[in-house]
Design a protein around this nucleic acid. Sequence first.
DNA 1: CTCCCGATAT
DNA 2: ATATCAGGAG
Length: 208
Amino acid sequence: MDKQQIARKVLERLKKRYQLKTALTWKNAWELLVATVLAAQCTDERVNKVTPVFFEKWPDPSKLANAEIEEVEKVIRSTGFFRNKARNLVNTAKILIEKYNGQVPKTMEELVSLPGVARKTANIVLGNAFGIQEGIAVDTHVKRLAFRIGLTKNTTPNKVEQDLMKIFPKKEWSNVNHLLVYLGREVCKARKPNCEKCPLNDICEKNI
DNA sequence: CTCCCGATAT
DNA sequence: ATATCAGGAG
């Protein structure tokens, strides 16, 4: 069975079990950008506890651009890396006001130029807020599962993304991220993967 | 490569 | 106590 066939089965089986959207709470590109930045090394569950307060205080870039950095730090503290995240979000808000008319840009190049935004975050925003399949968001779950299943021999996010882009059809790129993340959280966990309960058990190389 | 960093599971 | 959590920058 080649990688394309495995990829087809992965999509087919996981689509029966999981949703095709993020577990983050957001209602526009700005909110998704903020939520995704906050999600670095933090569970989406935790992010969803912080973002309602955040969006109430700073519902758009113009509000956040004028915020006190200490207040932002206070609100997002529980998500970890709070100093970096607060500084990056406020600076991003200022850039959006100055260069992008207060709007979240819709290209990879522009998004990754923002502080605290690299390909993973940009892919999430492009795919989910704008419906643009520019690449595949490779986070800790996607990286781990792609390697374990046997879809890649690489371990760096960029190389894993390149491998996955060759294997999965473009229209599924956003779904690849969502489905692998959900399986990674529930079954193929970093510490104790539950292979017995895994819907991919028979097609997985189990490179654990 | 290291650093950023609080919350949670094991 | 330690590993890990929807990463990114220096």
